[in-house]
Design a protein around this nucleic acid. Structure first.
Lengths: 146, 146
DNA sequence: GATATAATGACAATATGTTGTCAATATATC
DNA sequence: GATATATTGACAACATATTGTCATTATATC
């Protein structure tokens, strides 16, 4: 296939994503620091908080596009830290269901309150339509690769 | 600050970037596998290949938005693997200048040939203007955070 | 030129992630 | 129901990345 100008733009996007990923992880680490969390744990916390029903480790991994081993390690530590609980799964003897503890729920809410103005401030000055286009393009790329 | 709809779109973008970062690293690992490289090493190789002049480890780190320690580790191993060379820096006794070996250059060229059709194929079906908007938005976000 | 400050390489500790393997449990197929 | 296949948790090995520290070298300031 010829190297299209679209391909050129895409190469640029890829490099920007690598860069932005690193910056966003640092931002998340700073936002969560006062609660003793990190970007990675915040993401897991959010995945569980936003799930309509209790979910298992492999389900979170599939939702987030991570290996189940990576999620397992995080959740095990977060249970130790009293952020999450494992509860028996009536449909599966090995795969426990994950839930938030009161502490986990409280921290999640506080992080939501901190994240919203952060996002709005970062979005300020950027065109709404452009942001929506970006969101769509990223989603399309994920669908194409995955 | 109020949670704007722009902020909402941005939150979506952030999560998509985390996901896409992981997928792109896997793609890069697959593309580079036949040459014994990885996504991380490919990025370093590219940074050196595209630099107009020989550069040092901390310069690469700043260009790529990585810690100098992370880049140092990669370059040390890549020198061992005969992909890069350190050469004396007339302006600095400690900070060596990095260059590509013949092997490094050959692999870089082959990766370029592999990457272009990959990017074009991934971009296929996406609107050129949308891709350019995405690229611009990502760049703006990097500039705002960094 | 002397001295304070910054940048660099080396090393270590830690966090995040992938991959691979094993035994145990679920699920599908016959 | 028996059997083959897939999923899951636990464990280990490894790659990538940040942060922190130290001694050494550069650079800025006086």
């Amino acid at each position: 296939m010829k190297y299209t100008s679209e391909g050129e733009a895409l190469t640029d996007i890829v490099l920007n994503i690598f860069r932005l990923n690193g910056l966003l992880l640092l931002e998340g680490d700073q936002i969560t620091q006062e609660f003793g969390l990190t970007s990675a744990r915040w993401k897991v916390l959010g995945a569980i908080a936003l799930a309509p029903e209790p979910i298992t480790v492999p389900q979170i991994a599939r939702n987030m596009g991570l290996s189940r081993q990576a999620v397992q390690r995080l959740t095990n530590e977060m249970v130790t830290d009293d952020l999450l609980t494992f509860s028996d799964n009536p449909h599966h003897k090995r795969a426990k269901l994950l839930g938030l503890t009161r502490k986990g729920m409280n921290i999640y809410k506080k992080l939501e309150d901190k994240q919203r103005p952060w996002a709005s401030s970062l979005a300020k000055g950027l065109d709404r339509k452009d942001l929506q286009i970006t969101s769509t393009v990223l989603r399309d790329l994920i669908a194409k690769i995955d």
